[in-house]
Amino acid sequence: MRRTVVTASVGLSAAALVLAGCGSSGGSGTASSSSGSSTTSGVTGTVTVFAAASLKSSFTVIGKAFEAANPGVKVTFNFGPSSGLATSIAQGNPADVFASASPTNMDSVVKASDASDPTTFAKNAMQIAVPPSNPGAITGIADLAKPGVKVARCADAVPCGKLAMTIFTKAKITVNPVDRAVDVNGVVKDVTTGEVDAGLVYVTDVLAQGAKVKGIVIPADVNASTSYPIAVLSKAPNAAGAKAFKAFVLSDTGVAALTDAGFEKP
């Protein structure tokens, strides 16, 4: 009864996930019985998760499911750019789990001995996002090189910018973007406001925007993707909770939520 009340507030897909999670043996934190006792799984208290901004929708769903599977546990998220989160961890900001949008930022955290044993849990490929009306008549990656077509991509320094450059190289095209946004949200904003004809964004971004943008698939041979590693932090105040959450993300339940959001399996 109680479970029904909780899932109703999360939504249908979350309800499905919870049910799936219950039936699954992969999730380490899901062994608790319907008694609702929080002590049986050994997980208690609050789990603080630092996660890349692109994980917001999928991790929110996973967090609800994790809470439902572990009554009494609360998951607190801090979504932001991976680089900023890495800096924050280096400065001693207390967190239990770090989920990064790029191995680079995870490496710097591991190198500083703030985390160990990262596991890649998802990959995110790129897509061309265009306004619903497709004013630039974009049909494929080659159209981005056409004169007069306004293209936005991420700046060279950020992961999504690096992926965009890799794709342009693979496709053997030269693109002169009007905007090299500081993060992928800037590119999304350029497309949703119709200021550009096309933007290079993650598949997850296209799905998250729904009808506000149209996604044009980039063939696998020229596409590029970023890996998402997750790790338990060395100074995690709630180490047990952190381990349980990581395992939950890697479980079928977690993978299902990530796939729903557009991520690929690693």
């Binding site: 936005a152 700046a155 973007p177 009007v178 905007d179 090299r180 946004a181 500081v182 800037g186 904003k189 350029d190 200021e195």
Partner: peptide, 8 residues
């Protein structure tokens, strides 16, 4: 500026 004029 970054929102309106972008970065180029």
């Amino acid at each position: 500026t970054i929102t309106f004029a972008g970065n180029n």
